[in-house]
């Protein structure tokens, strides 16, 4: 069970002066149950890349395989694919349109031609999973706050029971509280429901805290890929792509330069704290010994 992109190339307006190569020779396999983050500078092709995964964009050349089947082959059921590979776009305003929150969440499953009871049951379940409060049910989706709209948008996709959930910058424009809520929600979905999460993000902190694997995209190519630890080791290279490493890692590098014996691979605040305390403990011991020697 996997989602696989093979030698995917994508070009806008081929053969005119407006020609633009967006993706170049992309090869990536996403296993079921993975938490993958895709990062890259604005215009690096992230959004185009994820739109290949549920057949919203077809590649100029190359293949996209879902469980080994070519999704652009004749007769492949794209509606089935889009229910299995759910996609939440950056702005919830792009998808909310119904009069009430509940009706909007029902839109996806209804398109799958399920029975009305099944549609309602799935919408209920999605509301619970995403923590959309019950009293929102009859409210208009347009009166909600940014974070709440996003929750409803995610619920609207989850109601289709996807195996893969792709999110394009789900935290953009949210305040810190709303951001953490959305990310924790994703983590919970990943851990409890076993859904693969594919997260496109600018925020190194978000990625370091949540992702198992990172793809770095620059000018349409995958330039780095690996665990957060492996990827964030390339601080200079990342800077060249207009990206940085998490702040915790920056501090660890600075401490190392000052002679502290800390783990420069620490990318999250928790890891950094543990490593600094350990380094201090070591110093404490040596400082104590030095004091004794003086005496």
């Amino acid at each position: 069970m996997s989602l696989e992109l093979k030698n995917v190339n994508f070009t806008y307006n081929p053969g005119t002066p407006m020609q633009q190569d967006v993706l170049k020779d992309i090869n990536v396999t996403i296993e079921k149950g993975e938490f993958l983050a895709i990062m890259g500078h604005t215009g690096s092709g992230k959004s185009t890349l994820i739109q290949h995964m549920n057949a919203l964009v077809s590649p100029t050349s190359g293949q996209v395989l879902f469980d080994g089947q070519d999704i652009f082959a004749q007769g492949f059921d794209k509606r089935m694919l889009r229910s299995k590979v759910g996609m939440v776009f950056q702005y919830p305003e792009h998808q909310l349109f119904e009069e009430t929150v509940f009706e909007d969440i029902c839109f996806g499953p209804r398109n799958l031609k399920l029975s009305e009871e099944e549609v309602k049951a799935r919408a209920e379940e999605a509301m619970k999973l995403t923590g959309v409060p019950d009293d929102f049910r009859e409210r208009s989706p347009f009166e909600l706050s940014g974070g709440q709209k996003r929750r409803v948008a995610i619920a609207g996709v989850l109601a289709m029971k996807p195996e893969y959930l792709i999110l394009d910058e789900p935290t953009a424009g949210l305040d810190p509280g709303g951001r953490d809520e959305i990310l924790d929600l994703l983590k919970e979905l990943h851990e409890k429901s076993g859904i693969s999460i594919i997260l496109v993000s600018h925020s190194m902190e978000d990625i370091a805290n949540y992702a198992q694997r990172i793809l770095v995209l620059n000018a349409g190519r995958i330039v780095l890929s690996g665990t957060p630890r492996e990827v964030f080791r390339h601080a200079d290279e990342l800077a060249g792509y207009g990206l940085s490493v998490p702040q915790a890692a920056l501090i660890m590098h600075a401490l190392k330069e000052k002679g502290f014996d800390v783990d420069t691979d620490a990318n999250t605040v928790a890891e950094a704290k543990a490593s600094i305390l350990a380094a201090l403990a070591k110093r404490g011991v040596t400082a104590g010994k030095a004091g004794e020697a003086d005496a």
Binding site: N54, L56, R82, S83, V88, F89, H94, Q95, F107, N111
Partner: peptide
């Protein structure tokens, strides 16, 4: 461009 994005967002939810 916005219409294109909205169309894709709804297609992702199974709209035809």
């Amino acid at each position: 461009e916005e219409a294109d994005k909205i169309q894709k967002a709804q297609m992702a939810r199974g709209a035809v």
